[in-house]
C-alpha cells in the first residue's frame, strides 16, 4: 500500500538471492524525520533487504511494493532510485581504480542536479563536508576506496551521503569496522544529515551505533521477517539478552 505520509515505505517485500528466498515479506513505513533501526543476527536478511531496495542486480525482489516520496521504486533502475532520493551506504564499498573521490562525487552530484546544473560550488562543498567528517583533503584525489581501510571506506560512504543529500538513507552496517573515535565521527555525520524531512534506516547487528544515533523505532529481523518492533529500549534489551528470546517469542530459530 502506498503510504502518503511516509517519505519511504515498503510492504510485503520478498527478496531472492540465487533462487533462494532470503527476505520473506517485510513491511515498513518511515515518516519524514524518523530514524528506524533494523537489527538482527547475521544471515537474517537485513543486508539483502537494503541491497534489494537500492536495486542491486544480485538481489531479486519477487514480491511487494516500495514507494519513495510517492514514486514507485520497484519500477526504477538503481540510478533512478538514487536520483529519486534514495541512498544506500554500503557495508562493503567497492574500489573503483582510476576514479578519484572528487571526480566520482562530482559526477554523482551532477547526475542528481541535472546536466545543466551549476557545479561551481562543488569544490567548496566537498572541502567543507570532508572537514566535517575529519577526512584528510588528500582523499579527494585518491582513487575511490582503492587501498582504503575499512574505517576510511565507511567515512567516505557517509561523505557521499552528506554531499548528495538524499531524502532517505539506508545505512548498512555502517558501524562495523570502526573504532570508537571513527564511530563518533560517523554518527555525528549521520546526525548532521538528519533533519525533520529525512528518513533514515539503520541496519545493524550491534547496538553501539544506536548510542550515538538515536532511533525512534527499532525492529528485529530474523529469518527474513520483521518479528518484533519497539522503541529505543528494544535495542538495549537486545544488547543485554541477544536475539534468541525474540526468536523464541516469534517461534523462530534465531540462527547464528
Amino acid at each position: 500500500m502506498k503510504n502518503r505520509k511516509a517519505v519511504f515505505s515498503f510492504s510485503d517485500i520478498h527478496v531472492e538471492v540465487e533462487g533462494k528466498e532470503v527476505v520473506k515479506g517485510v513491511s515498513l513505513a518511515i515518516a519524514p524525520g524518523e530514524i528506524h533501526a533494523i537489527m538482527g543476527p547475521n544471515g537474517s536478511g537485513k543486508s539483502s533487504l537494503s541491497n534489494a531496495l537500492m536495486g542491486h542486480p544480485g538481489y531479486e525482489i519477487t514480491g511487494g511494493e516500495a514507494y519513495l516520496d510517492g514514486n514507485n521504486l520497484l519500477e526504477m533502475e538503481a540510478d533512478e532510485r538514487s536520483r529519486a532520493g534514495l541512498f544506500l551506504a554500503f557495508q562493503y564499498p567497492l574500489a573503483i581504480p582510476g576514479v578519484t573521490v572528487a571526480n566520482f562525487l562530482r559526477a554523482a552530484l551532477k547526475s542528481q542536479r541535472g546536466p545543466e546544473a551549476d557545479m561551481s560550488d562543488f569544490r567548496k562543498l566537498l572541502k567543507k563536508k570532508m572537514a566535517g567528517l575529519s577526512i584528510d583533503e588528500s582523499f579527494a584525489t585518491r582513487y575511490l576506496n582503492d587501498g582504503f581501510s575499512g574505517g576510511e571506506k565507511k567515512r567516505i560512504e557517509i561523505l557521499q551521503m552528506s554531499v548528495l543529500n538524499p531524502k532517505v538513507a539506508l545505512l548498512d552496517e555502517t558501524d562495523s569496522g570502526l573504532d570508537i573515535d571513527a564511530l563518533k565521527t560517523v554518527a555525528a555525520g549521520i546526525n548532521q544529515f538528519h533533519d525533520e524531512t529525512k528518513g533514515i534506516l539503520l541496519v545493524t547487528h550491534y547496538q553501539r551505533l544506536l548510542n550515538y544515533v538515536k532511533p525512534h523505532h527499532v525492529h528485529v529481523m530474523i529469518d527474513g521477517r520483521l518479528v518484533k518492533s519497539g522503541g529505543p529500549e528494544l535495542a538495549l534489551k537486545l544488547e543485554e539478552s541477544g536475539y534468541d528470546w525474540v526468536g523464541a517469542e516469534a517461534g523462530l530459530k534465531a540462527g547464528a
Partner: peptide
C-alpha cells in the same frame, strides 16, 4: 551498480570505469 547507486547513469558509469582503467 555502485556508481548507479549514486545516481550515475549506466552509460556514464561504464565510461567512468573504463576511463579509470586506463588512467
Amino acid at each position: 551498480f555502485y556508481l548507479q547507486a549514486r545516481g550515475i547513469r549506466h552509460q556514464e558509469a561504464v565510461r567512468m570505469i573504463v576511463s579509470g582503467f586506463v588512467s
